[in-house]
Amino acid sequence: MKKIIKYEAKIILCKPYVPILLLINLLYSYYLLSADIILGVSDTAPFSGWSFGKYMGSGVLWTFLLSLLILITSNAGRKNVAVLTNVTGISPKKLNLVRSLIVTVFFLLSCLLIFLLGCVFLQTLFQTIRIGAYLAAFLLTALPCAILIIGFGTVAGNLHPAFGYVLIVLLLAVSLFAAAGIGGGYLLDAAGASYYETVSGLLESFEASETPFVIRGGYVLARSLYACLGIAVFWFGYTGSGKKDRFLSRMLS
């Protein structure tokens, strides 16, 4: 299994566009820090949990979309090889799971890089960071997305790549609308970034004091629902009956 993981990681991640897109993502995160977060979200400190949460959420969103893109393009590129790998001893579902786990680990490591970038930036500039709040923001934004990637990865291999691209566009649109407060507001946001700006704005006190950093139950519930969605998709994809596999593979052949 180690060998399979090693080669799958090489096939999926050792592509020229992966480090380039990751670099662009990091550059964008830096830009976000230096252009937006530095001003502080809803008049809170730039190093507050609110500001960091917004930063983390935005970074997670782009990393999430990048990871989905990697998953889709790697699946699209292996259709012809699948006729060979599908008849080996390893189940295609297990292979899909391995692939989605690889992409998930890549996603989490990238989010960690963004997290560290933010901490270093704020520490350098203000000599103040609030690790507890930052970790909470990190976990709440990144973990549900990680589970979604695992879930999506188990079904992605059986879907036309176009579904994946449509999903990416939909997630982006939903996040934009969430930021605008349209629809369900921050509850809909795939990466949970808009919670921090929206709620801190609502809680903003005009008594010129710091807005306390709070994680509302609704937000935790929304993030949990996303995680559950990921688990549900994973369960559907991984435990699907043989009959379904036969039908899908017939469609592919």
Binding site: S34, G40, D43, A45, P46, F126, F206
Partner: peptide, 27 residues
């Protein structure tokens, strides 16, 4: 004005001084 009074940098001018010049001027 209330929002402006609540601006983090106006409340904590010490942090404003920590910023690079261009950021400070922009704010």
């Amino acid at each position: 004005v209330k929002k402006q009074n609540n601006n983090f940098y106006l409340r904590n001018p010490g942090y404003l001084d920590k910023l690079p010049e261009s950021y400070k001027n922009s704010i």
